[in-house]
Design a protein around this nucleic acid. Structure first.
Lengths: 143, 143
DNA sequence: AATGAAATCGAAAAGTTTTTTCATCTACAA
DNA sequence: TTGTAGATGAAAAAACTTTTCGATTTCATT
């Protein structure tokens, strides 16, 4: 809680109820990779009447501040996750929407080499692997 | 030209002027990774008065038919490229919008291993590397 | 070559996702 | 406590894409 406020201050953002609540919700594991619209709904569920415009605004500010990361999966809408963790990439199951995070040193190093070979100074990258779970927990419900 | 008509027929699409012209433009190297809007403008430049709705419609049909591929870079709008080529990934310069294609066996193999390790049967993936050109042709104009 | 049904077209309306405007309100430094 | 820069919500607008609909065109069949 104070933890979150620290992050807001460091980003030069005032401590306001919308920002604190959004940060709070975004920290829950179940809300990793959530869209602005879905986050807005969760806020309503929790009894916080925060406007959708504010949700978008705050998510952008948090993205700019490096507090969270934006991803574009194949759904057409952006999803967000806390960036407190290590860098990682994503495996997305197209059947059950489960998102698995992974990190691979070999791929990372390879990307750097490729960028260097082409005279590009890399700022970031996005790697998404799409497929279908082959275990029985999948093919059923959500997540 | 007959080449393109073959592709249209195989896809079950009638040979119409909009489709032929769009296929023609899409085959030019300079139009790889072009957006619907930009393609629409190029058609006007060439004197073809084809509606924007038709451009979107045809691009979707071509995508469905596997004639071309759609990509979502970080610009918010989808871009298209002919799919006649080998599989490859993309390096995007955020300064000049140049797109470099590359293909790396090590990364490909690694992705397969990661998917297998997580019990996912891979269908496809998207890998985009973003950065800035370090040569002097960049930092100036477009492309 | 003529015919007709199914497919296609363009323009405009509508749909989606996200951003901006603007008047009001609030955090917080002094 | 107060002034102000910054933040908010509602509504409008923007950006991108899809859908609707009446008119037109392709093309297999005559």
């Amino acid at each position: 809680m104070t933890d979150g406020n620290q992050a807001l201050k460091k980003a030069g953002l005032k401590i306001t109820l919308p920002r604190v609540k959004i940060l709070e919700l975004m920290q829950e594991p179940e809300n990793q990779h959530i869209s602005a619209e879905d986050l807005y709904k969760k806020l309503l569920e929790v009894g916080e009447e925060i406007g959708l415009a504010t949700v978008y605004r705050v998510l952008n500010q948090f993205d700019d501040a490096g507090i969270l990361n934006r991803h574009h999966f194949e759904s057409g809408k952006a999803v967000f996750e806390m960036s407190t963790q290590q860098h990682h990439d994503h495996l997305v199951c197209l059947t059950c929407d489960k998102v698995i995070e992974f990190s691979d040193e070999v791929i990372e190093r390879r990307q750097d080499e490729i960028a260097m070979r082409h005279n590009i100074k890399l700022t970031h990258h996005s790697l998404y692997l799409y497929g279908h779970c082959t275990n029985d927990t999948c093919d059923h419900a959500d997540e």
